[in-house]
Design a protein around this nucleic acid. Structure first.
Length: 185
DNA sequence: TGAATGATTTACT
DNA sequence: GTAAATCATTCAA
């Protein structure tokens, strides 16, 4: 689980659409370990329409809408009925900078293109239509890549989860300017 | 049926 | 730095 979150750092997320191909290196992830992790949507084994994808096979996309304004993209993990997932929090754009910039209404060189969960979803045009999509055979897939030094830290914005918020379950590539929250210098 | 709530982003002071 | 936006899902009635 934590191993997967760490292994995903440096891999390439690719999304092919009629508009073109957009891809980026994953530079920041967080592990969510249901059902005992109170910070996870699948905490206490909560199985609902929203969390259903996490109870299915690993290697699928788990999408959810946040604050009515942002989508977030996760990779499901764990065996059947083990609702684990890894949240992808940031990407470093590799292919399709112009396409991403157009979708984000920004200029291509801005780090704001993909340095947040909702931002990368907008840049890659990810939304509910990808819910449960297989990440091996669909237009959305993950490819091998090389990562630099990987750092760890507590997860972001889950303070409500008490002791679970203390765990170092966030992984990020050091010295990468696309990481959403800079590590302490 | 209706109210509450975010694994956030953005704009504004 | 703070605050508002905004809506699918969830839970209570």
């Amino acid at each position: 689980m934590l191993g997967l979150a760490r292994a995903l750092v440096g891999k390439i997320l690719v999304h092919a659409t009629p508009d073109g191909i957009a891809a980026g290196r994953i530079v920041e992830t967080e592990a969510y370990r249901g059902p005992e992790d109170l910070a996870a949507h699948s905490a206490n084994g909560r199985r609902t329409k929203r969390t259903e994808a996490m109870f299915g096979p690993a290697g699928r996309a788990y999408m959810f809408l946040l604050y009515g304004t942002s989508w977030a993209f996760n990779v499901t993990a764990g065996a059947l009925d083990h609702p684990h997932a890894v949240l992808v929090r940031a990407l470093e754009p590799l292919v399709g900078h112009d396409l991403m910039a157009r979708r984000r209404s920004l200029t291509p060189e801005r780090r704001e293109l993909t340095n947040g969960p909702g931002k990368l979803c907008q840049a890659l045009a990810l939304d509910r239509s990808h819910y449960g999509a297989c990440l091996v055979s669909s237009p959305l897939f993950i490819s091998d890549g090389i990562s630099g030094k990987v750092g760890r830290s507590p997860r972001i914005n889950i303070d409500y989860a008490g002791v679970w918020a203390q765990r170092d379950w966030r992984f990020y590539e050091r010295d990468n300017r696309y990481v959403s929250v800079a590590p302490r210098s």
